[in-house]
Measured scan of single mutants.
Amino acid sequence: EESVKIVRLVKNKEPLGATIRRDEHSGAVVVARIMRGGAADRSGLVHVGDELREVNGIAVLHKRPDEISQILAQSQGSITLKIIPATQE
């Protein structure tokens, strides 16, 4: 059973501070990098390897990473992410 986590981040004009990529094996959209000091890093709630399912209620599974980045870039104020946390080894 996948544990889905709802994360709310507050982002002003600054970038979210995370990059995403598509996992070639599973097809999932995952967090590739977290930039120090960005909104994602400061929240402490988003981690490399987390699978991104939704951004502000928009399912991202069938979107290209550049489309998802665009949605994230255009979002201001509160951003709600639905993520499946990376499995902690």
Rank of each mutant, 00 (worst) to 15 (best):
G27Y: 01
T19N: 06
K11P: 09
L45V: 14
A40L: 13
V46A: 00
R21L: 10
Q76Y: 10
P85R: 08
V30W: 07
G49T: 00
K11A: 15
Q88K: 13
E51P: 00
Q76A: 09
V60Y: 00
I83W: 01
L61C: 13
G49W: 02
T87Q: 13
I71C: 07
D50S: 00
D23E: 09
E54C: 05
R8H: 14
V10G: 12
G44N: 08
S43C: 08
E54Q: 05
P65K: 08
R64L: 07
S26C: 04
I58S: 08
I68D: 02
A32K: 10
S75A: 14
V10R: 10
L52Y: 01
H25V: 14
T87K: 15
S78F: 11
A40Y: 02
R36M: 07
R8T: 13
H62R: 10
A39C: 13
L81N: 05
G44I: 00
H47K: 10
V30E: 05
Q76D: 15
H25A: 14
H47T: 07
V55R: 01
V60K: 02
I34V: 12
G27H: 07
R53P: 01
K5Q: 08
R53N: 05
R64P: 11
V10N: 14
K82E: 05
R33N: 14
S78G: 08
V4F: 06
G49F: 00
P65Y: 08
G49I: 01
R21K: 12
V31L: 07
V60N: 03
K13S: 12
Q70Y: 09
K63L: 11
V4A: 10
G57E: 06
S78H: 12
N12C: 07
E51V: 07
I34W: 00
P85E: 08
L45A: 12
L81R: 03
V30N: 05
Q70C: 09
S69A: 14
K5W: 00
E67L: 05
R33D: 15
A59S: 15
G27E: 07
S69Y: 14
Q88M: 12
S26V: 03
G77W: 03
E54F: 02
L45E: 13
E2D: 15
G27M: 03
D50W: 00
G37S: 05
I79S: 04
Q70N: 14
V4R: 05
S43G: 04
K11F: 13
Q70A: 13
H62G: 14
N12F: 13
Q70F: 06
G49L: 00
N12T: 13
G27N: 12
I68A: 03
I34F: 03
G27A: 04
V60C: 14
N56P: 00
R21D: 08
L72V: 13
T87F: 10
A39T: 10
V29L: 14
E89W: 09
A86Q: 09
T87I: 12
H25I: 13
A32D: 15
R64F: 06
E51N: 03
E54A: 09
V48N: 04
G17V: 08
A86W: 07
S26G: 06
K82T: 09
K11N: 14
V60M: 10
D66G: 10
G38T: 07
L81A: 04
A40Q: 00
S75E: 12
K82A: 09
E89A: 12
L9P: 04
L45D: 10
D66L: 07
H62W: 07
I58W: 06
S26P: 01
E54M: 04
S75D: 10
Q76F: 09
P65L: 14
A59H: 10
R36K: 15
V30I: 12
K82C: 05
I79H: 04
I34C: 04
V31H: 00
P65M: 14
E67D: 08
K63T: 05
A86H: 13
N56M: 01
H47M: 06
S26K: 08
I6N: 04
V55Y: 02
L52G: 01
I83P: 04
I71W: 09
I71M: 14
D41Y: 09
R42N: 07
I34N: 01
R22L: 12
D41G: 06
R53A: 08
R42P: 00
H25R: 13
I58E: 13
S78V: 13
N56I: 01
D66E: 15
R22K: 13
L9K: 05
K82S: 09
H47W: 01
V30F: 14
M35D: 15
D50A: 00
S75Y: 07
R36H: 11
D50G: 01
R8W: 04
V46T: 00
I20Q: 00
A32Q: 11
K63Q: 09
V29T: 10
R22S: 08
I34T: 04
I20A: 03
G49P: 00
V46I: 15
V46M: 09
E51K: 06
H62T: 12
S43M: 04
L61H: 15
E54D: 03
R64K: 14
H62L: 06
P65A: 15
L16T: 04
A18Q: 00
L16A: 05
D23H: 09
K5V: 15
A18P: 00
L45P: 01
A40T: 05
S75K: 11
E89N: 14
L72S: 03
M35L: 14
S69H: 13
K11M: 15
S43I: 01
S78K: 11
D23F: 03
N12G: 15
V60P: 02
V10F: 14
L52I: 15
V29G: 03
L16I: 13
E89I: 11
Q88C: 11
D50C: 00
A28C: 10
N56S: 02
R64G: 13
A59P: 14
G49E: 02
Q70K: 13
I58P: 01
A59E: 14
V30S: 07
L81V: 04
S43N: 05
K63F: 06
I34G: 01
R42F: 04
D23C: 09
G44R: 07
E54R: 02
K63C: 06
G38W: 02
A28W: 03
R64A: 13
I68G: 03
S69I: 09
P65S: 12
K13I: 07
A39D: 03
V48K: 06
I20T: 05
I20E: 03
S78A: 12
S69E: 14
K82P: 02
S69N: 14
D23K: 06
L61K: 15
R21E: 15
L61W: 14
V48I: 10
G49Q: 02
H25P: 10
E54Y: 03
T80K: 11
I58N: 09
V55T: 01
A86N: 12
I58F: 06
E54S: 08
I20N: 01
I84K: 15
G38E: 05
K13P: 06
E24K: 13
N12K: 09
L9H: 05
E67C: 04
K5R: 08
V29N: 10
L61I: 12
Q88N: 13
H62F: 05
G57C: 00
Q88P: 12
D23V: 08
D50H: 01
S78D: 14
T80S: 10
I68N: 02
S75I: 12
V48W: 03
G37P: 01
G38S: 13
Q76N: 13
V60E: 02
G38Q: 07
V31N: 01
R33Q: 14
I58K: 09
I20V: 13
R22E: 07
P65R: 07
R21M: 12
V46Q: 02
L52P: 00
V30Q: 08
R21N: 07
K11Q: 09
L61T: 15
E89Q: 11
D66M: 09
I34A: 02
I71P: 02
L16N: 01
P65E: 12
N56Q: 06
A40D: 01
R36A: 14
I84A: 09
S69F: 08
V7I: 15
L61G: 14
G77I: 03
R36N: 11
E24N: 11
V10T: 13
Q88F: 08
Q76P: 10
I83E: 05
S75R: 08
A39H: 11
I6A: 06
N12H: 13
I84T: 07
T80N: 07
I83K: 05
I20F: 15
A39N: 07
H25L: 12
A59M: 08
V31I: 14
I58R: 09
V4E: 09
S75L: 12
S26Q: 05
G37N: 09
I84N: 08
L16E: 03
L9I: 15
R53G: 02
M35Q: 14
S26N: 10
A40H: 01
L45F: 06
E51S: 04
K5G: 06
